[in-house]
């Protein structure tokens, strides 16, 4: 059996959760993997709870929804509180934005906080790219996608005029990840 990784991204509508999932999934494709992604959100486009899921696998994926996340990426408190319950206790990884989320102490879980939103606001003067900063962190910390695959997925999924900004965001994320290790 090849490796299969289940990733859940969650936060608020407008934080780029769905786009984050799409970029991550696309990066998996670029690495030659099998990928399935889905998302759910309220009827309101902004401000409601939002979830995006990605499965990256060495083999074709039969059931395309996440059954038990290996990695949880949380960008809001509400989302963290809602989805932390689904996590196992087998050294699964939680990556969260430390300005947005206060974690609970849970044994058997690796919970790593990063100043993604802060870095986006301060270094890039655009807090909307916090999602891509987080993706850089995730790639570096978990290695579920390669760095090249991530950068090329970003290029394919963001509009031309935001490309440079988003690539810079990913680089900052990769650097944050490296610093923590």
């Amino acid at each position: 059996m090849g490796e299969i990784k289940q990733i859940r991204l969650c936060g608020l509508g407008g934080q780029g959760i769905v786009l984050g999932g799409t970029i991550l999934g696309h990066a998996g494709i670029n690495d030659g993997k099998w990928v399935a992604g889905s998302s759910s959100y309220g009827a309101e486009a902004r401000g409601s709870a939002c979830r995006s899921e990605v499965i990256i696998s060495d083999e074709p994926i039969i059931f395309p929804h996440v059954t038990r996340p290996d990695i949880l990426i949380a960008m809001s408190q509400e989302a963290y509180d809602k989805y932390i319950k689904d996590m196992g206790r087998d050294e699964e990884t939680v990556i969260y934005d430390e300005q947005m989320v206060c974690t609970k102490e849970i044994s058997g879980l690796r919970q790593l906080g990063f100043p993604a939103g802060n870095v986006a606001t301060k270094e890039l003067e655009n807090k909307l790219v916090a999602n891509v900063v987080i993706l850089g962190i995730v790639a570096e910390v978990t290695r579920i996608v390669s760095q090249d695959a991530l950068l090329s997925a970003i290029e394919k999924n963001v509009p031309e005029r935001f490309k440079a900004l988003n690539l810079r965001a990913a680089e900052l994320g990769l650097a944050l990840g490296r610093a923590k290790k």
Binding site: G21, V35, A36, G37, S38
Partner: peptide, 9 residues
């Protein structure tokens, strides 16, 4: 809908 909105390889 679950297939229409699903993303996959």
């Amino acid at each position: 809908q679950a297939v229409g909105h699903l993303r996959e390889r």
